[in-house]
Design a protein around this nucleic acid. Structure first.
Length: 348
DNA sequence: AAGGCGGGGTA
DNA sequence: TACCCAGCCTT
């Protein structure tokens, strides 16, 4: 048998899965070596272009608070700027500080999230606000590990807050940056599979030394990916770095790598079933029976499965019996019998 | 490493 | 229709 010795005593699991967290690149990863030759100067042409072409976004304004930046990053996870803007304003009007959100019900956050999609993000942002109050006195932390320990904050969001809210110099990599670097530096049409450590090192290689310029450069390269160097039809005729983009200089070769995993069709999916239930929960002012939640669903089994998954995600909770008064048969009283024929559900 | 998770806009 | 989007979490 294996001689497992007590020299390796079991230790309590960390509160968060730090093993998945990726540290900033070490200088060794960034310093040009024999393998990593010179990289093009992207900041030179990109910064002036950005100053002229940038969108006027409120979370980039000088008066944006770290909390406002954090809220924007949550909302922008897989959701486009135009859809986020109105919800971001309403959110900060309602909850200008983490403490304001922490004092609210998660259900109010879910309602304010509206149809932005992935409503778990609203639950996570609410949980993060509670953590910010409990651990950091209500101030958004300006430390990488502290940010990564917040619910719903991953490698992108944590560094985005450090850079955009606090002006620190860190590499940041999102889907736009991955694509621009794949084309401009690697000379390929599309980035390979995401690899946080490698992607961060690639960004670190082109990041200006000065923290202020690095911040502007990060905004700039993301803006380029969003407005010019787009996934489908890049507008190279409007690109400020055509003289040094390796992909363009190679003649824009088609991608050779396997396309990224596709998302399953939405029509008829469990996601759609969840979305329908969430719409009813958001609209309801009193708890709803399961029958009311799944009425009209094309697949009742799927709808019940969706409701169960929403409960697991903290997006729906069982209502207390007293709250569901309208569903109780007349004459019945709380505690009558052991049966509870009409379980009810509401937002948390 | 892969799969689940919204929903709207665009080609 | 299929693809895309300022990702994160779980398994």
């Amino acid at each position: 048998m294996r001689g497992r010795q007590p020299r390796d005593p079991p230790r309590p699991a960390p509160a968060r899965a730090y093993h998945r967290r990726v540290p900033d690149p070490r200088p060794d990863d960034v310093t040009p070596s024999a393998a990593a030759t010179t990289v093009p100067d992207l900041a030179g042409p990109l910064l002036p272009w950005y100053l002229a072409a940038r969108r006027d976004l409120p979370w980039r304004a000088p008066d944006a608070t770290p909390w406002g930046v954090l809220v924007s990053e949550f909302m922008l996870q897989q959701t486009q700027v135009d859809r986020v803007l109105p919800r971001w304003h309403a959110w900060l009007d309602a909850w200008p500080t983490p403490a304001d959100l922490a004092a609210a019900l998660a259900g109010d956050a879910i309602r304010a999230w509206g149809r932005l999609g992935y409503p778990r993000r609203a639950v996570w942002l609410h949980a993060a606000a509670l953590q910010i109050v409990e651990r950091h006195g209500g101030r958004v932390p300006d430390d990488l590990d502290a940010l990564l320990a917040l619910r719903g904050v991953g490698n992108y969001t944590a560094r985005a807050v450090l850079v955009f809210a606090f002006g620190q110099r860190h590499p940041v990599v999102d889907t736009n940056i991955r694509r621009v670097l794949a084309r401009a530096v690697d000379g390929v049409a599309a980035p390979g599979p995401p690899n946080a450590r490698r992607d961060l090192a690639a960004m670190a290689r082109v990041l200006p030394r000065d923290a202020g310029r690095a911040r502007q450069f990060t905004w700039a390269i993301m803006e380029l990916g969003a407005l010019v160097c787009t996934a489908r039809t890049p507008a190279c005729d409007r690109c400020p770095i055509t003289d040094r983009c390796r992909w363009l200089l190679l003649g824009r070769p088609a991608t050779t790598s396997r396309p990224a995993r596709r998302q399953a069709r939405y029509e008829g999916s469990d996601r759609q079933a969840r979305g329908r239930i969430m719409a009813r929960l958001r609209a309801a002012t009193t708890p709803l029976t399961e029958d009311a939640l799944i009425a009209g669903a094309p697949d009742a089994t799927q709808a019940r499965r969706a409701l169960a998954s929403l409960v697991r995600d903290g997006l729906a909770v069982r209502a207390e019996a007293a709250e569901a008064s309208q569903t109780r048969p007349s004459g019945a009283r709380p505690g009558d019998g052991a049966d509870e024929p009409h379980p009810c559900w509401r937002l948390p």
